[in-house]
């Protein structure tokens, strides 16, 4: 399902980045170096920095809470715990959404649809993830200190938000493809790249087919958080069907960290991964006209601790959103 928008723009963005992300190549509005950041728990630290991220965005676009019609937010924790507590601090209507790491594009699609239908004028989309809160929910207790595998991705610590509005700006959201759930019967909860790569490819091909486009139409095709190995799978899938490799393809998981840092294993993951790369790299590059057309494909592994423990497979989903400089 591909939608076209005429009236939806990214007006402003904000970013807050934490440990490991700050050693990467991009610059962020605010940074913190410790997983606690003077709070008692990792979760409280994530909530604090998420609130900070929204406040930075409101400050940058010079708007008050009353000017915002809706915040669409997502995070990785059960019941969207971080988003719920973050929204405690704002007097703004709230939608909590979850499509795992594909939530960023899901939020952009929802916001653009609402704005394009002229029901709302200003919507904030926000995402947050934290390495240790996600680790202990999805995998093992932090104190356990288990040995990680090299194909594992390393959840990004940070928050990012965007103001989507009908007010014209340089960056327009032009089209979006809503993905379908794909399940390739992968059961390894550590190998997220393998889980998500087929889903990213499916959505990508659907997007091209439904809009009758060629991959070269885009200056940059950016997938969410496939990691080094998932990126290779995506590349190979494309090669198998088209007979050549994409030169304009990148994966945000492979961009967000310092590539020489072996501690981050196969690269980044988490909801905030593609959002941080988009806000801190893609959008500035689009403003400086290096990229004119960008396709974002946020990829999400719809993993549940219960289903993994019951040895069920991990389904995945990807949504695509295209941005254009006007």
């Amino acid at each position: 399902m591909t939608l076209k928008y005429n009236n939806s723009y990214i007006n402003e963005v904000s970013t807050v980045a934490g440990p490991y992300v700050i050693y990467g190549p991009f610059k962020y509005d605010e940074t913190f170096t410790d997983y606690y950041d003077n709070e008692e728990t990792f979760e409280k630290c994530e909530i604090k920095n998420y609130i900070k991220c929204i406040n930075i965005l409101l400050g940058k676009c010079n708007k008050s809470e009353n000017d915002i019609d809706l915040i669409i937010s997502s995070d990785l924790l059960n019941q969207l715990m971080i988003s719920n507590f973050m929204m405690n601090h704002f007097n703004i209507p709230f939608f909590g959404v979850y499509n795992a790491c594909a939530s960023f594009c899901e939020e952009l699609i929802l916001a653009s649809t609402l704005i394009d239908s002229k029901k709302m004028n200003n919507i904030i989309t926000a995402t947050s993830s934290n390495n240790l809160t996600a680790e202990r929910q999805y995998r093992n207790p932090v104190e356990y200190g288990y040995q990680k595998k090299k194909y594992q991705t390393f959840t990004v610590t940070g928050s990012a938000s965007c103001l989507i509005s009908n007010k014209k700006s340089n960056i327009k959201i032009t089209t979006a493809t809503i993905g379908k759930v794909v399940d390739f019967d992968v059961k390894d909860s550590l190998n997220m790249g393998k889980v998500m790569a087929p889903s990213a490819y499916e959505t990508f091909i659907t997007h091209l087919k439904e809009l009758n486009l060629k991959p070269e139409y885009y200056d940059l095709i950016l997938t969410g958080d496939l990691g080094k190995y998932g990126k290779t799978i995506f590349n190979e899938l494309f090669y198998k069907n088209f007979g050549y490799y994409l030169s304009n393809y990148e994966d945000s998981a492979c961009m967000i960290y310092d590539n020489n840092d072996k501690r981050v294993l196969a690269g980044g993951s988490g909801i905030a991964c593609i959002n941080l790369v988009t806000n801190s790299y893609v959008i500035p590059q689009m403003i400086s006209k290096k990229y004119k057309r960008v396709l974002l494909i946020a990829t999400g592994a719809l993993m549940s601790v219960t289903s993994v423990n019951q040895k069920m497979s991990i389904p995945s989903i990807s949504h695509a959103v295209s941005l254009e400089v006007i």
């Binding site: 356990y144 288990y146 040995q147 595998k149 390894d188």
Partner: peptide, 10 residues
């Protein structure tokens, strides 16, 4: 075993 199977440390 850790490097060649899907078994976790536990």
């Amino acid at each position: 075993i850790l490097n060649n199977t899907n078994l976790k440390p536990g």
